[in-house]
Computed example of a mutant assay.
Amino acid sequence: MEKLIVDASKPKWRINLKELWAYKDLFYILAYRDLRVRYAQTFLGLAWAFIQPLATLTIFTVVFGKVAAVDSMGVPYPLFAVCGMGAWTYFSFVLNQSGNSIIGAQEMVKKIYFPRLVIPLSKAVVGFVDFGIAMIFIAVLMIYYQIAPSANIVFLPVFVLLAIISALSVGIWLSALTIRYRDFQHVVPFLVQFGLYATPVGYQAKDVIKRLPEWATTLYYLNPMAGVVEGFRWSLLGGDPPSQYAYYSFTVVIVLFLSGLYYFKRVERVMADIV
């Protein structure tokens, strides 16, 4: 694969989109490899992609729907929960995979040149498998409970895009940080586990923030997925629009994404030396 010559007059932190496009074949190969390896030599194969969200949905239904009896906006709780899981499932997968992506490809990073950003970006594509399965669950439950999507569904692509950017922003940050500080390999599983309950996946955000002081509410919405999940569910089921504090989440998503790209480009120059 021909190595492109980067214009030295351009700032080193800028992302060279032309160069990324030139390595699109490598991007496709990495994504396809990860997809095949994920279910290779497993007894149930692709069925695991259905079993895992189904198990999570069952736990949420028992704990939040039956025991805690949270307000589910007047719709059956399983549908309420799976609408929250839709965006979170994609985010958690990309976060898990991107965090160790550069270290996992360290032999390739040491031997050949290519834009290192291709590696975490390829994980985002594989995550669409989980996202697609979550959308299948949503469609099946809507048909089963005979509930039509709300008119707000026109905004669904916006929140899907925000979920993608959010997942990539945190994933890019972690993939770069893990190279210098290997402790972050152990932080990622904790972030996913903690984030699942710190994000309104199995409950409504308004049920939490009404019990919190304003400073704690602001802190809650600094979670980039808090507003995204809230908006994702609103676009499917309707009801009250996302809280005004959700804009904090959207702002954090953009800030994390831009700062993540900047930091990644700085670290990229020495990745082959320190990986």
Score class of each variant (00 low, 15 high):
95 L>T: 08
134 A>F: 03
30 L>K: 10
34 D>N: 12
58 T>P: 11
52 Q>P: 12
124 A>S: 15
74 G>K: 00
26 L>M: 02
124 A>M: 03
95 L>W: 05
113 Y>I: 07
123 K>M: 06
34 D>C: 01
52 Q>V: 11
39 Y>N: 07
133 I>M: 10
100 N>P: 02
45 G>T: 12
115 P>V: 02
28 Y>G: 01
31 A>V: 04
93 F>N: 12
107 E>R: 07
108 M>D: 13
80 F>S: 11
71 D>W: 09
113 Y>N: 04
85 M>L: 15
61 T>P: 10
71 D>H: 13
45 G>H: 12
129 V>T: 13
82 V>W: 06
28 Y>R: 03
77 Y>V: 13
93 F>G: 01
16 N>S: 05
77 Y>A: 12
46 L>H: 13
91 F>H: 09
49 A>L: 14
119 I>R: 06
113 Y>M: 03
29 I>M: 08
135 M>F: 11
134 A>V: 03
57 L>R: 15
21 W>Y: 07
86 G>V: 08
67 V>D: 13
21 W>L: 01
103 I>C: 06
133 I>R: 09
20 L>C: 00
103 I>W: 03
42 T>C: 14
20 L>K: 01
117 L>W: 04
100 N>C: 08
65 G>T: 14
114 F>G: 02
37 V>S: 13
67 V>R: 10
36 R>I: 12
117 L>V: 04
47 A>P: 10
103 I>M: 07
28 Y>K: 04
27 F>M: 04
74 G>H: 01
134 A>C: 02
96 N>G: 13
110 K>F: 02
107 E>G: 13
80 F>V: 10
69 A>H: 15
105 A>F: 00
121 L>A: 13
80 F>Y: 11
37 V>D: 08
30 L>Q: 06
37 V>L: 06
55 A>F: 14
73 M>S: 14
16 N>A: 01
78 P>G: 12
61 T>A: 15
19 E>F: 00
138 I>G: 04
120 P>I: 03
20 L>Y: 00
58 T>A: 15
59 I>A: 11
111 K>G: 09
109 V>W: 00
47 A>L: 14
14 R>N: 00
94 V>P: 15
94 V>Q: 11
51 I>P: 14
94 V>C: 11
61 T>H: 09
29 I>G: 01
33 R>N: 09
32 Y>R: 09
67 V>W: 14
107 E>I: 02
131 F>H: 06
112 I>M: 10
123 K>L: 04
35 L>S: 05
50 F>W: 13
137 F>R: 12
125 V>E: 07
73 M>C: 04
119 I>Q: 09
84 G>F: 06
21 W>T: 05
67 V>K: 12
100 N>V: 04
64 F>N: 14
115 P>E: 04
47 A>T: 14
82 V>P: 07
100 N>M: 05
130 D>N: 10
57 L>Y: 10
34 D>L: 04
29 I>W: 02
114 F>T: 10
15 I>N: 00
80 F>G: 06
107 E>Q: 10
79 L>R: 05
44 L>G: 13
46 L>K: 11
35 L>T: 05
66 K>T: 15
124 A>Y: 09
14 R>A: 01
78 P>Y: 05
55 A>S: 14
25 D>E: 13
